[in-house]
């Protein structure tokens, strides 16, 4: 009760029902920074996972070093680091331009994420029976083709649920890039706070993050359903799956996959 009375609910309400243009830009920044950083993380994670499984020792060593450094240090420090070492003000990609702090933020978040994705992807690949690779090889498929056509599509089913949780995290963690001056959801709230000195904009921004993660839960349910259906037919309704991901972070959904119970 005391806490609730400290919140300017009128301001919260107006931040939710009357988003201004600046806010929409901030929301969009959070979305695209998260998506690009996550994609970067997946790519780096896959490369690092394959390096980790290589017969060539230096590659395994590099992969280990990567995880050691980026999982062992705060992402906030990494964000500052990339901001300080990346030169220039604006990056021109032809079709669009990105500010230096946005590039630094995406790189830091993506490279950090790759270290976590490596373990997730490796566990996914490890979960696939060795016989699958042998069957592919015995048909004359080379390592790359076997991975791409046989192992990874199956590993994807194991990888997707934790990947979804990683992206949920990413959308929230991306708020840290406000420290290097990226204008995104949290910066926007901080801006309003500095002129109102009320906790209201943070309550409102929490709501907006909740909207983003909830929308994502739905998409995650769609993807997981598609992966499950192609093999066995889904015995979970989309609604049950979405609610499970939304409220329990996907663990329950994974356990409900019949093919996982089998292996």
């Amino acid at each position: 009760m005391v806490v609730a009375s400290l919140i300017n609910w009128h301001l919260v309400w107006s931040r939710i029902t009357n988003p201004n243009t600046v806010f929409v830009h901030a929301l969009w920044a959070t979305v695209y920074i998260s998506i690009v950083a996550q994609v970067l993380g997946i790519v780096l994670g896959l490369i690092a996972a394959l390096m980790r499984m290589s017969v060539f020792k230096p590659l395994r060593f590099l992969s280990g070093l990567y995880v050691l450094v980026f999982r062992g240090t705060p992402v906030l420090v990494q964000i500052m680091f990339f901001w300080l070492i990346i030169p220039g003000r604006v990056f021109d990609f032809g079709a669009f331009t990105l500010k230096q702090e946005v590039v630094a933020g995406i790189l830091a978040l993506g490279i950090n994420e790759g270290a976590y994705m490596r373990e997730i992807i490796r566990a996914g690949i490890d979960s696939i029976d060795r016989g699958q690779m042998e069957a592919a090889k015995s048909l004359g498929m080379r390592y790359g083709l076997s991975m791409r056509r046989v192992v990874l599509p199956q590993a994807a089913r194991v990888i997707v649920p934790p990947l979804g949780n990683e992206f949920n995290n990413m959308m929230k963690t991306s708020s840290l890039v406000y420290i290097i001056g990226v204008y995104e959801l949290f910066s926007d709230a901080e801006q309003v706070y500095s002129s109102s000195f009320n906790v209201a904009p943070f309550v409102a921004v929490a709501f907006w993050y909740l909207v983003l993660t909830s929308i994502w839960s739905f998409f995650q349910a769609l993807i997981e359903r598609k992966l499950a259906v192609s093999e066995h037919g889904d015995e979970l309704s989309l609604r049950d799956r979405a609610v499970a991901i939304w409220t329990e972070g996907g663990g329950m959904v994974r356990a409900a996959w019949p093919w996982r119970a089998r292996s």
Binding site: G131, Q132, V150
Partner: peptide, 20 residues
């Protein structure tokens, strides 16, 4: 090695069909 294996069919004890 891959090319040589195209000449040799292998049937496994545990089938190893691609489940997907």
């Amino acid at each position: 090695i891959a090319r040589q294996r195209t000449e040799i069919g292998f049937v496994f004890q545990r089938f190893n069909l691609f489940p997907h």
